[in-house]
Amino acid sequence: MNFSGLYRLRVLYRVLIATIGGYFFSVLVAILLSYILPTETKHAIAWSTMLFFIIYTGVIMWVFSVPTWQKAFWGVSVTSLFFTSILVAIKYLGVL
């Protein structure tokens, strides 16, 4: 196993991308789902909150499985930005 400083730094990046980036990504997807699931709002909130944990698990696994941490970083941040813009459109511009 390679214990050089660079290797440790790369692991640290991935841990941060997975825990913090993955968290925001999953929260955004869960909130988005709570708006579009075809059921009463309160049930949609409940389902999406439950799904949050499944999504989070999936994202963390994805972050650790891609070849480079840069790819993980861009993957998580670009999709998060995309979902944020959709959410803004729904919540403040009244789309949907």
């Binding site: 929260v27 869960a30 909130i45 909150t49 949050f52 944990f53």
Partner: peptide, 20 residues
């Protein structure tokens, strides 16, 4: 494990509620 998470569901993840 899954039901353990559900036990603490809204304590651990209040943000979807906050969104609405």
């Amino acid at each position: 494990t899954l039901s353990g998470l559900l036990m603490l569901l809204y304590t651990l993840m209040p943000l979807v509620i906050n969104a609405h």
